[in-house]
Amino acid sequence: MNRVFMPGIQRCNLYNNQQSLQNNKSGSLIVVEGIDVSGKSTQIHLLHRWLLSEGYGVFFSEWNSSPLVKGTTKLGKKRKVLTPTTFSLIHATDFADRTEHQITPALKAGATVLADRYAYTAFARDMARGVPRNWVRNLYSFAVKPDIAFYFRVPLEVSLDRILTGRAALKYYEAGMDIGLSDDIRECFKLFQQRIMAEYDSMVDEYGLTVIDGTKSIEEQQAEVRRIVKERLSLGDGVLSGRR
């Protein structure tokens, strides 16, 4: 299976040993994507529980969680000194650390790796901030290509309704206030989410994202997710990889 993330620049591997890393991978990588409050974290949590109960070795990795980089990201956000370029780079650094220390070793060890948000989040957000498309895609060209990338799609109004009524305060970068689409944080959030969603939609075909209708009930969505995971990851004998 071709394990290189960017179809166009296969020879542009970041590190000489990247190819061998990719080929040695024996586990499976499943990622969830979508705009804020699309329900993806709930779904991956339920998938995680199910895989464990079925006896699989599961490793979970979350966006923006590298202990090495966290302090810097936090500082940058707090002081509001991150530009679209440094915002993009610091998240790529976080992703690189998790790829090197968590995702790749876990895959080589044969685990099923679940990731809450992946490189697609960076593509969507960074491009919504006006960062050049080819630049950010080159940045992430070292990423391992997922076996399944679920995209939880909810109409913009649903997401806005959920987030604007559900939570008191929107955060500065989350609302895209740094690029100044509007002085009003709620209005800015709407415009920014709209852009992000358009980017996600445009990636469905390009990267073969598996779209899940996020307006369905939690149970319906989860049933579909489990069905697809079973189907796509089953080997000749119908066993998922990573089973202990």
Partner: peptide, 24 residues
């Protein structure tokens, strides 16, 4: 100012992977 502290910390621990270092 943004990365000084984080980079110093990362380099003192010798846990910095190569891609991570490039991007940091």
């Amino acid at each position: 100012e943004l990365t000084q502290e984080g980079l110093d910390q990362a380099k003192s621990g010798h846990t910095l992977g190569r891609k991570t270092m490039s991007l940091f």
